[in-house]
Amino acid sequence: MIGAYEITLVAVVSINLMLALGLNLITGFCGQVSLGHAAFFGTGAYAAALVAGGLPLPAVLLVAGLFACALGLLVGVASLRVREDFLAITTMGVGFVFVGVVRKQGFLGAEMGLTDIPDHGLGDLGFVGLCLALVALMALLTWHIKRSWMGFGFAAVADDERTARTLGINAAAYKLAAFVIGTFLAGVAGAVYAYFTRFIIPGAFGFTVSISILTMVIVGGVGSIWGVVVAAVLLTLLPEFSRVINDYKLLLYGALIVLTMRFAPGGLAGVVAAVKARVRPGGGP
């Protein structure tokens, strides 16, 4: 039976899926660890909230994506300058600066947030349809990128940037491309979030959100699209299923992450690869 509960749950899962797919492009395909994905998510949400009154829905999604990827481009430029752990901490900083600036701006509603975001006009089922369509589109897009020449470039940069350069791969261009596309997806997710809750507050785009998205990507298995999809769905729904044990659910969530990393550091995708290898010893036929 599909009720309002299931429908809204699908919306929440879809938003996380969009975020995870976008981050998977940056962190998974291109190897740039980002601890600030919520900043792009938030940029999209705020942009959408500001323009949703005057524009049709598809235009709002586009504008949100563009605003987010403008910020993404900036951070991408920064990623050309700082590497690895320095980049991880820089992106974390971007996240904190985003929230810290937004919560002081009157025109963004400051702490009270932005409100009266118009109805999407699609109805409950229509909205969920839109969510699922966007997720499918994004999954297809990332799948296509992974298989394309661009995906090869990403992988080369992720693997060993210096070697990639000596092979004549323009590492800077690939990094920028990863940030721009990945953050565009986050911006679209932000717009969907704004339509979903119909008000936004700075607290919804904090550090813990960035962390939980990165966790989905890494538990899924860095770079694996289906792994990230499965992990995003599982990790979003886990607290939902464990509501009966309200008190222990976050503990359970933490423990799951620790155990996955400890015993399956390759994430879900790593586990499946290992099982496949065991089924076909010696590399198979």
Binding site: A88, I211, T215
Partner: peptide, 21 residues
């Protein structure tokens, strides 16, 4: 390196929750 980072974040969540409980 991100494997240890995420493991560490997971452990931190567990610790905070254990203290609360």
């Amino acid at each position: 390196p991100y494997v240890a980072l995420i493991a560490s974040i997971g452990l931190f969540i567990c610790m905070e929750e254990s203290y609360r409980i």
